[in-house]
Design a protein around this nucleic acid. Structure first.
Lengths: 199, 199
DNA sequence: TCCTCATGAATGAACAATCATTCATAAACA
DNA sequence: TGTTTATGAATGATTGTTCATTCATGAGGA
């Protein structure tokens, strides 16, 4: 099946391009084939169907992203630093591959097929990194104990994600990833600090 | 064209249902017609095409939402209270109409057709409400001056939005809107307060 | 009051175009 | 030569949209 890995990757990369440009449903398989410089039928030697291209793409790329994020966090102990680093790396990744970001951002999420029924383990783990940092911070007494990690995690990811959406969809470069990452992590770090306890 | 407003609304409501269930591209116009109890062709007396149903739906519903949010904020002066209220109302709206939330959340955003080229004024205004609150808070000396309102606005909206996505897609009822709204606004209020200035 | 006739809203069967997928064949390779 | 890999034209199912026709309503005339 996957003898020629080069061709497999070429199709994945072509799919990222075409999906980003046209959207999943408006993308033609024949267009992906053309972009990858293979025949239409060749795609079906490597993928079961059009859906499978999107799913495979997601799995392959999420694994890379998860790997890079773990790598970047490994060197840090301080939960505050880890939060800051997460934001920075996440937004840099988005900036470094807009097309991929757009596909993951917009296309992957749209279909209940992909978000309701299909669950990606790498993606789940990626999100879990955040709540782990928060939990850690609470244990170390740096973060408020009354913050619910799973909610704070969603809020933090959502904040980064919305920033990405803005970049991806507006194609304006209003802020650098560094500035945006700093602004967002400032809010969350200050918002979660122990000394800002509410009630 | 729009003689019978009842029929127009019936189609909109049916479309919300069908789009939420099937997704925009997998929804059949004939299915919307069936749900609305009109003939297939009737839809084309009220809407130009399938895309137009989605756009119209968005416009009609965003107007209602914007109206309700403005109404709810009108009675409050304190920027902190306004932030808290925004979160609460937003999440309550999502909870109160999951199907509509799903369509706005997932379907509207997917296509570059709708998010890149097409810009909705009501939606823009809705987001603008947030940055206005932040700016106001800065002027009153309640919020940090070094926070960039447009970034903080995106972060705040993104946080709420991600919470909504979780509800819409997972169908779990892990947290009440009140709890989630409190948790999220706690983070942002504390994160933006003047006394938490960074650097 | 009753009967035409005009209007345009509503219908749904039929059309036409699109595209994911298949498969008979050919090329490449061992 | 036999096997694997690749091709791309052909297929056929799907579905958005159209349009000839029906039908309900009400105006105008007698």
């Amino acid at each position: 099946m996957k003898r020629n890995t080069d061709k497999y990757n070429r199709i994945i990369n072509a799919a990222v391009k075409v999906f980003a440009k046209k959207g999943f449903y408006n993308a033609k398989v024949s267009e992906i084939a053309k972009e990858a410089q293979v025949a239409d039928g060749t795609i079906y030697l490597y993928f079961q169907n059009k859906d499978d291209i999107l799913i495979s793409l997601f799995e392959v790329e999420m694994e890379k992203i998860l790997h890079r994020m773990k790598e970047q966090l490994a060197s840090l102990d301080d939960p505050v630093e880890r939060i800051r680093r997460f934001a920075k790396v996440h937004l840099e990744l988005v900036q470094s591959d807009k097309e991929l970001a757009e596909v993951i951002q917009v296309e992957i999420r749209q279909s209940s097929k992909f978000m309701k029924e299909y669950r990606n383990e790498q993606f789940r783990e990626y999100l879990h990194l955040i709540s782990e940092i928060i939990r850690e911070g609470q244990e170390q007494g740096v973060f408020r104990k009354d913050a619910v990690p799973s909610i704070a995690q969603r809020a933090f990811f959502g904040a980064l994600d919305e920033m990405s959406r803005y970049w991806v969809l507006s194609s304006k470069r209003s802020y650098t990833p560094e500035v945006a990452a700093k602004q967002i992590s400032d809010i969350f770090v200050a918002g979660l600090r122990r000394d800002s306890e509410t009630d």
